[in-house]
Simulated assay, not measured.
Amino acid sequence: MGFLPSRPPPERTTKQIGDAAEDAALAHLQRQGLRLVARNYRTPGRGGGEVDLIVQTPNGTIVFVEVRSRADARHGGAAASVGFAKQRRIVFAARHYLMRQRQVPPCRFDVVVIEPEGITWLQAAFDAP
């Protein structure tokens, strides 16, 4: 009986890499005491925004988290990739999310960076314009 030759494992897709980065970021935030409220929150329709993670601190602050992953620091690394246009889409999605709340809690925008050197949590990384 012949055996099939072993094949190298298929490369991970960008979606799989992004999901793994979000899993790592969420685990890190949960170890810091934050609680998951929503994951991959999207506004309806085209051209809207998306928030990777929405978490809540023990004191009730809602935190909208953008997760960025980079294999290396070329082009400024992962944190530099959260430019004005990306921030605007995150803020748009956050406002949409907050419209559904009876009372608007304190909130902020964080970025969690996943790089080969480790995880960096940038709290209050940007403000809503």
Rank of each mutant, 00 (worst) to 15 (best):
residue 14 T to Y: 09
residue 14 T to D: 14
residue 15 K to C: 12
residue 16 Q to W: 09
residue 17 I to Q: 06
residue 18 G to Q: 05
residue 19 D to C: 06
residue 20 A to D: 09
residue 22 E to G: 02
residue 22 E to A: 08
residue 24 A to Q: 08
residue 25 A to R: 00
residue 26 L to F: 06
residue 26 L to I: 13
residue 27 A to E: 10
residue 27 A to Q: 12
residue 30 Q to R: 10
residue 31 R to Y: 07
residue 32 Q to M: 07
residue 33 G to F: 01
residue 33 G to W: 02
residue 34 L to Y: 04
residue 36 L to G: 02
residue 37 V to I: 15
residue 39 R to P: 10
residue 41 Y to S: 14
residue 42 R to Q: 14
residue 43 T to P: 01
residue 43 T to Y: 04
residue 43 T to L: 06
residue 44 P to H: 13
residue 44 P to L: 08
residue 45 G to P: 08
residue 45 G to T: 11
residue 46 R to E: 13
residue 47 G to W: 05
residue 47 G to D: 13
residue 49 G to N: 03
residue 50 E to Y: 06
residue 52 D to R: 01
residue 53 L to F: 05
residue 53 L to D: 01
residue 54 I to D: 09
residue 56 Q to C: 12
residue 57 T to Y: 03
residue 58 P to F: 10
residue 59 N to Q: 13
residue 61 T to N: 12
residue 62 I to E: 08
residue 63 V to H: 09
residue 63 V to F: 07
residue 65 V to S: 03
residue 65 V to M: 03
residue 66 E to M: 01
residue 67 V to K: 00
residue 67 V to N: 00
residue 68 R to S: 06
residue 69 S to R: 11
residue 70 R to A: 06
residue 70 R to L: 10
residue 70 R to S: 11
residue 70 R to I: 07
residue 71 A to C: 07
residue 72 D to E: 06
residue 73 A to W: 03
residue 74 R to T: 12
residue 76 G to F: 04
residue 77 G to A: 13
residue 80 A to T: 06
residue 80 A to D: 03
residue 81 S to P: 14
residue 82 V to N: 04
residue 84 F to A: 13
residue 85 A to V: 14
residue 86 K to H: 13
residue 87 Q to K: 11
residue 88 R to H: 15
residue 88 R to V: 12
residue 89 R to T: 15
residue 89 R to H: 15
residue 90 I to F: 04
residue 90 I to G: 02
residue 90 I to P: 13
residue 91 V to R: 01
residue 91 V to I: 11
residue 92 F to L: 14
residue 92 F to P: 03
residue 94 A to V: 06
residue 94 A to C: 01
residue 94 A to R: 01
residue 94 A to N: 02
residue 94 A to G: 06
residue 96 H to I: 04
residue 96 H to K: 09
residue 96 H to L: 11
residue 97 Y to N: 02
residue 98 L to M: 10
residue 98 L to F: 05
residue 100 R to W: 08
residue 101 Q to I: 13
residue 101 Q to D: 04
residue 101 Q to K: 15
residue 101 Q to N: 07
residue 102 R to S: 11
residue 103 Q to A: 14
residue 103 Q to P: 12
residue 103 Q to R: 15
